[in-house]
Amino acid sequence: MIEYVNSNSPLHRLDPRSKIIFSFSIMLAAILTSSYIILASLIIISIIIWIMADVPIKKLKPIFLVLFTFVLMGTLTQAVFYTDRTNYTGPVTVLFNLLPYNVPVIGSLPVTVEGLMYGVVFSMRMVVIILAPVIIPFTTHPSDMILVLREMRFPEWMILLITMSIRFIPLTFQNFYTIRNAQKLRKIKTGFHDLMLLMETLLITSLKTSKQMALSLETKAFGYSSKRTSLKTIKFGKKDVIFSAFSLTVLGIVLINTGAVYG
């Protein structure tokens, strides 16, 4: 669903660490603030960054789908249930009822102005929280992510585990579907017992695959030395410093604003 898009956009040229700083700063800012204006500004910033990332719009379809679901569900549930909370003490202004009559236990599901307003804030926050971090996998080549992990002194076995999972997980899924298809071709109605049989076969084939992978790794001198050279390195350059400074400034402004509101 989310995969690297090859491009030479300004975002692609950045060090992954500066993109991580950006994502965390924007996400934290969205969590801290309840201001419509600030949340709208954070959404605008995220959209500008997305435009700069040069990711084809069709790649964003699944993201839009997730966003739409969150916005719809978030706004609706908050509009109905926000003022229902036991600790809510504010005013309750009912706009209309979702149900024309009172249903036992759930009532008539009234949509309130206060709930709707909180729902909008909640949804805007979710939009920022989803939009900001997914920019990383779209614009960062997996090999650069591996380099980041290496720079962060992650153990080599853990890095290998991550890289292998990139391949091993799709392979396992592929085997899962093949075995499931084989079952469907012999039995019309499959149930829990068949799923157990499938998992057993999948486990055996996966173990065989991992054994072959382990043998191959042995012949590639993996684990030979605790020190390991790396052909490629990444550098936190001037552009990364500027981008990170911008991200932290946004967070700073939100922090000050939030402090002012609560203070």
Binding site: H141, P142, S143, I146, L160, T163, M164, I166, R167, L171, T209, Q212, M213, S216, L217, K220, A221, F222, G223, Y224, S225, K227, R228, T229, S230, L231, K232
Partner: peptide, 22 residues
């Protein structure tokens, strides 16, 4: 399928030399 571990061809081909700490 079971003998490729890296995310680019270049990384894959450099894998043994990196492991040998060249």
């Amino acid at each position: 399928e079971v003998q490729l571990f890296s995310v680019t061809v270049e990384d894959e081909v450099a894998f043994i030399a990196e492991n040998l700490n060249y």
